[in-house]
Design a binder for these strands. Sequence first.
DNA 1: ACAAAAGTGTTAATCTTACACCCATGT
DNA 2: ACATGGGTGTAAGATTAACACTTTTGT
Lengths: 234, 234
Amino acid sequence: MEIQQNIKIAVDAIVFGYNDNTLNVLLIKQKFGALKNQWALVGGFVHDQETLHDAVNRELKEESGIKVNYLEQLYTFGDDIDRDPRFRVVSVAYFALVNSTKFTLKADTDAEDAQWFPINNLPPVAFDHAQIITLAYQRLQSKLTYKPIGFDLLPREFLFSELENLYCTILEKDIDRRNFRKKVLSFGIIEETDKFGNKKSGRPAKLYKFNRSKYNQFIKDGFHFQIKLDKKKK
Amino acid sequence: MEIQQNIKIAVDAIVFGYNDNTLNVLLIKQKFGALKNQWALVGGFVHDQETLHDAVNRELKEESGIKVNYLEQLYTFGDDIDRDPRFRVVSVAYFALVNSTKFTLKADTDAEDAQWFPINNLPPVAFDHAQIITLAYQRLQSKLTYKPIGFDLLPREFLFSELENLYCTILEKDIDRRNFRKKVLSFGIIEETDKFGNKKSGRPAKLYKFNRSKYNQFIKDGFHFQIKLDKKKK
DNA sequence: ACAAAAGTGTTAATCTTACACCCATGT
DNA sequence: ACATGGGTGTAAGATTAACACTTTTGT
């Protein structure tokens, strides 16, 4: 039995990075093809003998040189038949987090340029990529409240104030520092190091790190990670 | 620029129904093709000029004659290159809820047979469909606690005890009837009718119905739907 | 009168919120 | 000494959890 079908499968990756109190999205400008000189998400067609995950990782490597901390499938876009003007493409979008301080972007094989853009100040992007980014941002916001994925946007060792700011920034909320600290520490999933941050002013602050195995135990014991920030940002 | 790719796109639907305190999954047995005489999820290949949603709805119609109350994309399965032994297939799985008391299944065009199976007593199913069903069940369990999708498994007018049982059954938890009722009513999203159920024994019970526009208002006002059942089932 | 399911309130415990002052460092 | 950000506790209010008896109907 032969199936006639003329639809291509692509993957796209929405990569978030966090730096200087700003949430950024990684965009690339391609050298070749239909996307020449347009900003777009990292992505491309899936090879016949390659899993979807492998395809995303390959594109991330080829187009940005980045190694992500977190990667999950976001959504498959296939309800707009003409999203790509060339032919029909169904795109499986992935959602990735990276500690962006660690990386210098190197536009590799296929990309002329790769750059971070603040989520609140994106350039025009190709196809329906703006819509994909919006969905990814919503997922990030909601997932941040019930999974400890914020740590994947921070360096391995971080200041409490960085974690606070990350939550404030991404959730667009104010925060009560005391309550936030109490709540986070109550989970017992982050621990002090004996090192201190090197901020220029103010009292030196301890560096903390996320303990993933304690988190796994916490979950196995039937507890729930949950961080709600209730006040609205001015 | 021509893209060489030899991957087919399919959709599959996991349809849940609820009846007699049992959560059921809809499976079909196909007349033709590789799946002949095996139980499988409703599904098939996407046509070139058809959205993914249209494809699911078409397959649901062709293979079961069911009209669902709720439909959302679940996950795209494309990491097992050999999940279909014939050729590579990437399948976009959808998750659907139906008030199964309303329907008599009619195996239509493509299906020899269509039947409900209790989630805890499934027959062997084709391909990786067992895995897909497991994922869908997890999604149902978690979504039930934060979205009012339980109503999509019940008749339009239902007894409070039916709603209670639905939550107990699907979440595999015990329940405190008083606390559950208080919590659900506190949201103000369901309302009494002046009708009564027709159980054979016991005191007659009022029928209730879900008011979707009140729910939308509730959400717009910034409230959160949340139902947790804490005690474990014996 | 009994069996079966429906309906209903109170209290203790827990969790959440609001709130402000002192501390350690660099300049 | 002052500016900067770090670190900390308590009390009021809200939410959740535990718990059992009365009501209405059919038989």
